[in-house]
Design a protein around this nucleic acid. Sequence first.
DNA 1: ATAATATACTTTGTTATGCAAGATACTAAA
DNA 2: TTTAGTATCTTGCATAACAAAGTATATTAT
Lengths: 118, 118
Amino acid sequence: MNIDTINTDNVKAQMRKGILEYCILLILANNDAYATAIINELKAAKMIVVEGTLYPLLTRQKNQGLLNYRWEESPQGPPRKYYMLTDKGRALLTELDASWNELVKTIQSLNKKNNNLQ
Amino acid sequence: MNIDTINTDNVKAQMRKGILEYCILLILANNDAYATAIINELKAAKMIVVEGTLYPLLTRQKNQGLLNYRWEESPQGPPRKYYMLTDKGRALLTELDASWNELVKTIQSLNKKNNNLQ
DNA sequence: ATAATATACTTTGTTATGCAAGATACTAAA
DNA sequence: TTTAGTATCTTGCATAACAAAGTATATTAT
């Protein structure tokens, strides 16, 4: 997914597909985090995500320049890759916030129509 | 996507992928409609969808027993396939409404965290 | 008549991506 | 030195969104 594509026409269509990416940016906007912590946070929010999904996604976002990472030693076990938002990532997050709000409104309006007629 | 899968564990994960399906059920809950009309309604809501996406999706939902259709003559042009919700489709729509609300709350809570810390 | 245009449905091939499953690697404790 | 726990990464499969082309029907213009 190209960041420039998101910004133009089909924001909501891209939002539809990008909710997981959006959630990751939201989590990282709060705190730098490593993959397992992100998975746990998503699980706590009842959004099941597995490693085979998350790792490639983080790599993709990093390659797009949305994220960076640093290695940190763990109190127990192998070192952890802590991801953090870049400026570009923060900029995209701001746009995705707007797209998300639009999507919510769109679905509200589709719902409202039904309520009016029932 | 299996209707029984949706109802159990990973509602939000399925919701993420199923927003377009959700929108179609929402539109059809309002009025029976044929494909071109559905596309226009989604375009009006700035959710770009093309024929190559919509037609297979409608067929899928019909095969799952969520939709039925009837043929209707058009004032101009070839006959139209009007889709309508089945009872099963309405039941799923009710569940997806709940899942959607949960997803909105989840993202609100991820957002709230950030606001509290800034 | 018939060619052109508009409308509508369908199919094909490509690409992307979510996931299950397994592989690799580091650390600590038994 | 083997087991258990934590963590990252990879592979192979299935699904699905899309672009693009194809098929079919009806109307209008020539």
